[in-house]
Design a protein around this nucleic acid. Structure first.
Lengths: 148, 148
DNA sequence: CTCTTATGGTCAAGCAGCTTGACCAATTCG
DNA sequence: CGAATTGGTCAAGCTGCTTGACCATAAGAG
């Protein structure tokens, strides 16, 4: 593959990601969840299964734990998450999503589905499935880096 | 497509984009171009063909023209771009890339190619081509939004 | 069991990149 | 011509992140 093709691929990927982020964010906002930024969505992704500590979150988001702590404070103040004592470590605090947090996560799912829907018209159902498979294969498991 | 599948697709796309951005940035840095942030790459993309005005750039990056102006000032100070009088409008200034700017753009191409190369092992040459085609189809032509 | 070291978390101050607001110069249109 | 628009910069302010310092608990060495 030529360099220029790789650049075109990269540019398209980045443009699609930017557009998608914006659409999901707008969709979440439209569903009545205010005061959120896209970075909060990445936090939810880490918190969703069983909660997480601030340090876990920091590693996942690729920021300092101070930054993660501020983010959690903000989400807690707005009622999306709760800090509970950690069952196994008295130093740590387990950050878990509230019911409102889960509702917001569901809204994000809906918004994502809505944003992706028009792609089926361009690529076909089959094409979208292939795209999803390919992206899952190349996507890293490591920390999400929301900052460009 | 189920909502959860759309979310998985979105998450993979965003993770891949974040990873790719980071790798390209690191590759450009490794090739000796310092003091740059990923956002500058998006500026180059707009400047590359024939240069652009600050206002054009602002629209392309989705920021205010003041922010774009600062960015240009920074790139100019570091020798990547030059401000020339606009040939058709005495108010405007045409921002064009210097030779060093072009060298940096080539470095970005190489870094992109390097970052994408391992994907061929996962998807096959054919698979990468399909991925590129699909992304080009869904990528918006509009402004790139580097801020999450 | 203590002493040292590592780990989870917060407080405080500073910085970088962006925004809003005001303003000037050149252009366009009535 | 005069009014309104457009390209660009200057200045001040905000927000999210960083570095640095610090405390409480935990884990490991002796």
């Amino acid at each position: 593959m030529e360099n220029s093709e790789a650049l075109a691929l990269s540019a398209a990927l980045l443009a699609a990601a930017g557009d998608l982020t914006q659409r999901i964010h707008a969709g979440v906002l439209a569903r009545g969840f205010e005061g959120l930024r896209p970075a909060h969505g990445f936090a939810f992704a880490r918190l969703a299964p069983d909660g997480a500590t601030v340090t876990d979150l920091a590693a996942h988001l690729g920021v300092t734990k101070q930054a993660a702590s501020q983010l959690v404070e903000e989400l807690a103040r707005k009622g999306y998450v709760e800090r509970r004592p950690h069952p196994e470590d008295a130093r740590a605090r387990l950050v878990v999503m509230t019911e409102r947090g889960w509702a917001c996560a569901r809204a994000a799912e809906e918004a994502a589905a809505e944003a992706v829907r028009p792609w089926a018209a361009l690529l076909g159902e089959q094409g979208v499935r292939h795209l999803r498979t390919a992206l899952l294969a190349v996507a890293p498991g490591g920390p999400v880096r929301p900052t460009w």
